[in-house]
Design a protein around this nucleic acid. Structure first.
Lengths: 308, 308
DNA sequence: ATCGGTTGTGCAACCGGTTACATTTAGCCT
DNA sequence: AGGCTAAATGTAACCGGTTGCACAACCGAT
């Protein structure tokens, strides 16, 4: 048997007689054969590696995304490599370009990268955006905006007339979406104060507390979990009670604080990564990749009785 | 000029005339040349990829390790791929074997994997262990045991006569070390109760609270941050005040709980990953790799006045 | 002027698969 | 039976670098 036949049996069995394929597989198993990825890549032009680009690893928002993407990649027999790049300036494109020569595609989480930088980066290889939408590019985002809007509506339904939204960092796509959503939800029904911009940190929440008190809001919607925690900590320390919500699913922390009555938004990062990888796989190696698609994953809200 | 010369100019410039090297570099820059990793690997046998194996991504203990290793790998021009494997059973060795054919080396974080499984896995390629020691293998660990022992001594110095250690999971190497250390520190000076085993979760801490109360301990040293948080939460809910410590550097959480007086242990995961990668780099591609080395990184303790 | 020793460069094989194309074999139709 | 098509396999070029070896150029020393 020629090595060509063996090669086909392993990578494209539909071209080979079933009986032959079986023999090849048996032999491969017996010899403990592991195909050499380098040789395969060199010949085929496909590396079998996909890169997941995150701006930082310090934010725990990204870890489940990585885990989800990694799981899906492994199913597909691909390797995942994690690259840390904020994608904030054009300078980073050179590193990106180098990386692009090594991988078959990208999943990019660039919550704050400039539109054109991200777009340029995505031109190298098939790319799927996570938690960020840009016209013409495929993306998978958690539809937190709708959830935020819903929270505001709900607060209003419960009688709150003065509500604060603690805004996230400038340039954050999600922050833009959420701001629009909460504004729309409050329009004509309640007085909404948009604070910020604030970074997504505990300290920012503490700092925002004074503004919240000054605004005399009875309900607060913060951009991020950490902000919410800092805010609640500061308010509680000041003896003030106020409903507030937290993003992401760090229930442990929220529960630990004793704020069991706080409505929280659950972003399923694992699924986000999973779906993003799925989308990417559909765009790798296809001669006619499917059209760009913008997916929005619904985000459940864990609502609870307001704090007594 | 032949491609051989160009190749040498790029990868081993000491073999080429400086002037020639300069010309090659200029040309490469102008043409935007990016070497093809696959071809290089195929010819040289080196892949330029190292794998970092973690048991899970859900535990935030590992993220800074990844970040540190990734940063160091990038400096060295290597790519890092993250693989999730508990390394608990021999079955996983087949996946490990496949992976080993694709990479130049491993950094393995296997806090609970069986000794022989980890040892077998490390036989494939140069390997550095993180936060785990096994005889004959190179490792980089945070010396939390010493820190734990120091905490117990300090508690004793402050007059505590009954101390509890809330043990971590069975099979955890670090838990073994810490148990030994706290036991040694207390011997003959105070009554130490070793509780557990408990998983490293918030719920476990809540569950352990009853045991702590029953033991009438005035000071508690929990295996992990999450346990400590759960414990403090439960004790506080029960109206009990007690010193306790937390592992890892999740200051935000600790501060948020208002336990600002709690001594805490700071494991610098970033440095752990950094050093581990450094060790690995020294063992890759060397014809005579340095002898196995077991590094212990000192762990600072943030001590504070006990809670009033 | 000759020779041994460096240093720098070229030649060509090679890494281990993939794949376009050629060839063989089998099956079916008129 | 002859011819045509489809299926299965073989042949060999090729992917893009690396590296052992041969060779040329230049050096100072004899």
């Amino acid at each position: 048997m020629s090595k060509a036949t063996a090669s086909r049996a392993l990578s494209r069995p539909e071209l080979v007689a079933p009986e032959t394929t079986a023999r090849v597989l048996a032999a491969a198993l017996e010899l403990g054969f592991v195909p050499n990825r380098a040789a395969r890549e060199l010949a085929s032009g496909r590396s079998g590696i996909v890169a997941l680009v995150v701006p930082t690893l310090e934010n725990s928002f990204f870890t489940p995304i990585i885990a989800g993407a990694q799981a899906r990649a492994e199913e597909a027999g691909l390797q995942l490599t994690v690259a840390v790049h904020p994608l904030a300036s054009t300078d980073e494109l050179v590193a990106f370009r180098r990386l692009s020569a090594q991988v078959d595609g990208f999943i990019v989480a660039a919550p704050r990268g400039a539109d054109d930088v991200v777009r340029a980066a995505s031109a190298f290889k098939p790319t799927v955006l996570v938690d960020r939408e840009i016209d013409g590019l495929t993306s998978v985002v958690a539809d937190t905006a709708t959830a935020f809007g819903g929270l505001v509506s709900r607060f209003i339904d419960e009688g709150h007339g003065r509500i604060s939204y603690i805004g996230g960092p400038d340039g954050s796509w999600q922050n833009g979406q959420r701001t629009l959503a909460v504004t729309a939800a409050a329009r004509g029904r309640a007085e909404l104060t948009v604070l910020g911009p604030y970074p997504a940190t505990f300290a920012a929440g503490v700092a925002a507390a004074a503004e919240v008190v000054a605004a005399e809001s009875t309900a607060v919607v913060p951009y991020a979990t950490a902000i919410g925690l800092g805010l609640m900590f500061a308010l509680r320390a000041g003896g003030v009670e106020s409903p507030a919500i937290t993003v992401s699913s760090e229930r442990m922390v929220v529960d630990a604080l004793g704020f069991t009555g706080v409505p929280a938004i659950d972003v399923d990062g694992d699924e986000l990564g999973h779906v993003a990888m799925h989308q990417l796989l559909a765009r790798i190696g296809r001669s006619t990749p499917p059209a760009a698609e913008q997916l929005r994953m619904p985000v459940p809200v864990r609502w609870a009785e307001p704090v007594a």
